[in-house]
Design a binder for these strands. Structure first.
Lengths: 340, 340
DNA sequence: CTGTTAGCGCCTTCAC
DNA sequence: GTGAAGGCGCTAACAG
């Protein structure tokens, strides 16, 4: 920078000002500076700049696994929106583990990201959120939403979507469900489960006929699902509340020799890539994950501008994609008229 | 930091030294400093530290799309190895586009990553690599390998794997192939194509019977594949050289009403997640992507230690996973004995 | 074993 | 419209 200044015959402060457009400089001097920059191949030192301004123009994103389809899309959305604003994205995976999550958050904060977008791990300790409140960097919660936290949040209408899904299935005559609900410490999964009971109430189904599988261990869930499927008077429809849970459910089907839609209906949240290419083609409730990522960045930027505005929660609408895994009618049932 | 020093009754340089373990300090002073740190909640400023040491303890990774299964796994590998060494990972996607790639590389370099791991975009201009040579940050090329470049490289044995795949198929009686080769500016795809011709020679097949589809546009490739499949005397086996190419190929099958393995054999490189869960179950050549990521970080670290060692290229072995999409025997053929 | 000091490269207030 | 100078928080000589 001092080289540039010397070559252009100006002071370094002028160089700084042409670089940042932070005050008027005479066109002639300006172009001389630009030429000198070109000539020397000078590039701003982001670090020094960030240190001086205490602003890094970067944001952090923590998800449990950026490889899962839903998260991958959110990452894309965040990336897209960040790039649009000239922000660099620092990405970290928590692998659904509280201590890794904590470490990741710390690392990002130490790197002085301007803000943080966080899809909390399942066992994310409440203390983490409490600590975060103390940080100067604003935080936006993504996908995994909590009640009564002082942060902006972006999620999907999980409860309503599940309710709509159940309605669709009951309209096809299903009255006994197996819900693979997974880890009920995850808010998303609780919301989906709540939606299921909404649906059960809507259709006046017997609660006792419904089987809910909760738990963390996928192998256990798969085994329980297998047992539930094998039993007499078992479910006519399976609902998996996330991609990994769908994997467990599909394996259970396979192990018990059941096929969808021939023997049983199957629907999942989040789903898989290329859902039309492979069989079974699964009916899927799909998050607007890309848009959720975009929205998270937007909220973060707005928060940076107005730190004291009251926190906002945004819920985006999910799409119910009907495919052949739910196209049949429940065995032994006469389909009823749609519920008004 | 000056607060900490004051409270502990020492100088800031002592604080720095206990923080970094960079010289002996008396246990008593040391614990006093630690206590003061605890008390004040002091945290090092990574930025100032990085600026002073001109070392950020971070590395950059650029891939075309971290959502694609193969890249996703590489990212995991890189992440894992980086975390193990206390390095932060800055991830950027190039979307297979040279200008976005260039921008991403620039951004990462400006953030002063200590090193860069790069899976070049298809149309990555040679100038990029030339420019990179001038940078002080070492570069490791991942997956997309080039000849005669002065960088460390990590890839897979694409040519050999394809050769083995072709051998497998010819042993099942296939003599006419459709190869969806894609963008031949991508080194990986060229290597795979070379391997195909190796296999053709091995089995003494007529080169004229083989159809090779090259090109960038997936819709075009899909249409060409459809045409090739529809023609009389068409291929008995399709080989897709990457995941997106497999998508194009499978859609073409669908559009022409062909099914695998009933009507035609199908194999792909890279493949899809959960390959056993959905049908068709595709025979797949799978990269050891996680290990490739790990290896890339290792090479990078070694390079940082010995900047002048001569560049090394590492090729990892790929796995040929046989599944039902190639289990049949080519129609109208008597399977031959395995080639010795 | 500990303290003092000189910058790292930049932005920004203040003076001209 | 331009320059000079201070300091962001830290590390690494150098000096005791």
């Amino acid at each position: 920078m001092v080289d540039v200044a010397r070559i252009a015959g100006v002071s370094i402060s002028t160089v700084s000002h042409v670089l940042n457009g932070t005050r008027n400089v005479e066109p002639k001097t300006r172009s001389r500076v630009l030429a000198a920059i070109e000539q020397t191949g000078y590039r701003q030192d982001t670090l020094a700049r960030a240190m001086r301004r205490s602003k890094t123009d970067s944001i952090g994103l923590v998800v449990s696994d950026a490889g899962e389809p839903a998260f991958a899309e959110m990452v894309h959305g965040v990336e897209h929106a960040a790039a649009e604003r000239g922000l660099t994205l620092l990405l970290a995976n928590s692998a659904e583990d509280a201590s890794r999550e904590r470490r990741a958050v710390r690392t990002l904060l130490e790197r002085r990201v301007d803000g943080l977008i966080l899809a909390c791990a399942a066992d994310s300790a409440p203390p983490l959120l409490a600590d975060l409140r103390e940080e100067k960097a604003p935080v936006v919660l993504l996908d995994r939403l909590y009640r009564d936290v002082p942060f902006d949040q972006v999620g999907a209408d999980n409860r309503d979507s599940m309710r709509a899904l159940v309605r669709h299935l009951t309209e096809h005559g299903h009255r006994r469900f197996l819900v693979i609900a997974g880890d009920v410490r995850v808010p998303v999964l609780v919301e989906r489960l709540d939606g299921f009971f909404d649906g059960v109430r809507d259709a006046r189904l017997a609660v006792d006929d419904q089987q809910i599988l909760t738990g963390v261990d996928l192998a256990d869930l798969r085994a329980s699902a297998g047992a539930a499927l094998g039993a007499a008077g078992g479910p006519t429809a399976v609902i998996a509340c996330s991609t990994p849970l769908a994997v467990a459910g599909l394996r259970a089907l396979e192990e018990t020799g059941r096929r969808t839609p021939r023997d049983i209906a199957f629907a999942t949240f989040d789903g898989f890539d290329n859902p039309d290419l492979f069989r079974p083609r699964l009916t899927t409730v799909r998050q607007p994950a890309f848009d959720m990522g975009v929205a998270a960045v937007r909220l973060l930027m707005e928060r940076l501008e107005t730190p004291d505005a009251s926190p906002r929660t945004v819920r985006l609408h999910q799409d119910l994609q009907l495919r052949e895994s739910t196209e049949g009618v429940a065995p032994g049932s006469t389909p009823r008229e749609p519920i008004a």
